[in-house]
Computed example of a mutant assay.
Amino acid sequence: MAKIVIIGAGIGGIPMAFEMKENARKEDEVVVIADTPTFHFVPSNPWVAVNWRKPDDIKVELAPVFKKKKITFIQQKVTRIHPEQSQVELADGNAVAYDYLIIATGPKLAFDEIPGLGPEGHTQSVCHVDHAGPSGEFWEGFVKDPGPIIIGAVQGASCFGPAYEYLFIAETDLRKRKIRDKVKMTYVTSEPYIGHLGLGGVGDTRGLLESELRNKHIDWICNAKVDKV
């Protein structure tokens, strides 16, 4: 019998748990440890940020799903891993032993790297559903009194797709509200060129996105530098 422990229950952790359960032997146990009771579908965060969806629309309770799949679920924060003892230490003081450990916690957001960045600073975010919800509230106020807006991703970003998604979703929402002409939109990115995506481009993403931005009359600034104070 083997005990397979997975830390994290997001887009990486949940599919991994399902695949491990499917491929494991009947006597093996799959355990998921996460500090949240719900899964949220990250790609829908930009929709929440313009109120096309509400936060609860993209959340799923984890316990019933894992119970149905016969996967053990522990809702706790992991405070330490002890590889010598093959144990995971939890915030409540308990320890979980493992034979195999999979870490799928996702990125650690580092808004503090740039002064003023992030929901606690002076910008909105779609990195997490808990950010996207307040961003939707901000958007509701913005469309009542529209003006110039800057959207983008700063240096050090590991995933640029959501910034583009939010840009085009916001632009579409403005058109639907018939106020697009009142909003000057600027896209700022630390990529060396539009469509680089941190991957050197995917197919002709550069040409496609440059064309789309021109067609939608969106200004853009690439490889931007933000000075630290």
Results as ranks from 00 to 15, higher is better:
Lys3Phe: 03
Val5Cys: 06
Ile6Tyr: 03
Ile7His: 02
Gly8Thr: 02
Ala9Cys: 09
Gly10Pro: 08
Gly13Cys: 10
Ile14Glu: 00
Met16Lys: 10
Ala17Thr: 03
Met20Leu: 12
Met20Ala: 10
Met20Gly: 00
Met20Asp: 00
Met20His: 02
Lys21Phe: 02
Glu22Phe: 14
Ala24Tyr: 03
Asp28Thr: 08
Ile33Leu: 09
Asp35Pro: 07
Asp35Gln: 08
Pro37Arg: 13
His40Lys: 03
His40Leu: 03
Val42Met: 05
Pro43Trp: 04
Ser44His: 14
Asn45Lys: 04
Ala49Trp: 01
Ala49Ile: 00
Asn51Tyr: 05
Lys54Gln: 13
Ile58Ala: 10
Ile58Cys: 07
Lys59Met: 12
Lys59Ala: 09
Lys59Leu: 09
Leu62His: 03
Ala63Pro: 04
Phe66Asn: 01
Lys68Thr: 09
Lys69Ser: 05
Lys69Val: 01
Lys69Cys: 00
Ile71Lys: 01
Phe73Pro: 02
Ile74Tyr: 09
Ile74Pro: 07
Gln75Tyr: 01
Gln76Tyr: 01
Gln76Cys: 01
Gln76Asn: 07
Val78Ala: 04
Thr79Asp: 11
Thr79Glu: 15
Pro83Thr: 10
Pro83Cys: 14
Glu84Gln: 14
Gln87Leu: 15
Gln87Asn: 09
Glu89Tyr: 14
Leu90Arg: 03
Leu90Val: 04
Asp92Ile: 07
Asp92Ala: 12
Ala95Thr: 10
Ala97Arg: 11
Tyr100Lys: 04
Ile102His: 02
Ile102Thr: 07
Ala104Leu: 05
Gly106Leu: 06
Gly106His: 14
Pro107Gly: 06
Ala110Arg: 15
Phe111Ile: 09
Phe111Met: 11
Asp112Met: 08
Glu113Val: 12
Pro119Trp: 03
Glu120Ile: 07
His122Ser: 11
Thr123Trp: 07
Thr123Ala: 13
Gln124Val: 09
Val126Asn: 02
Val126Asp: 00
His128Arg: 12
His131Cys: 04
Ser135Ile: 06
Ser135Glu: 08
Glu137Leu: 05
Phe138Thr: 12
Gly141Asn: 13
Phe142Gly: 00
Val143Trp: 02
Val143Thr: 11
Lys144Ile: 01
Pro148Ile: 02
Pro148Arg: 07
Ile151Cys: 10
Gly152Arg: 10
Val154Pro: 13
Gln155Arg: 14
Gly156Cys: 03
Ala157Thr: 12
Ser158Pro: 00
Phe160Arg: 06
Phe160Ala: 09
Phe160Thr: 06
Pro162Ala: 10
Pro162Ser: 11
Tyr166Leu: 15
Tyr166Glu: 08
Ile169Asn: 04
Ile169Leu: 13
Ala170Asn: 01
Thr172Phe: 06
Asp173His: 12
Arg175Ile: 15
Lys176Tyr: 13
Lys178Gly: 09
Ile179Cys: 05
Asp181Ser: 14
Val183Leu: 11
Lys184Cys: 05
Lys184Phe: 06
Met185Asp: 06
Thr186Trp: 01
Glu191Gln: 10
Tyr193Pro: 03
Gly195Lys: 00
Leu197Ser: 06
Gly198Pro: 04
Leu199Pro: 04
Gly201Ala: 12
Val202Cys: 09
Val202Glu: 14
Asp204Ser: 08
Leu209Asp: 06
Leu209Phe: 14
Glu210Gly: 10
Glu212Ser: 14
Glu212Gly: 08
Arg214Phe: 13
Arg214Ala: 15
Asn215Leu: 11
Asn215Tyr: 13
Lys216Asn: 15
Ala224Asn: 01
Val226Ala: 13
Asp227Gly: 10
Asp227Phe: 08
Asp227Thr: 15
Val229Ala: 14
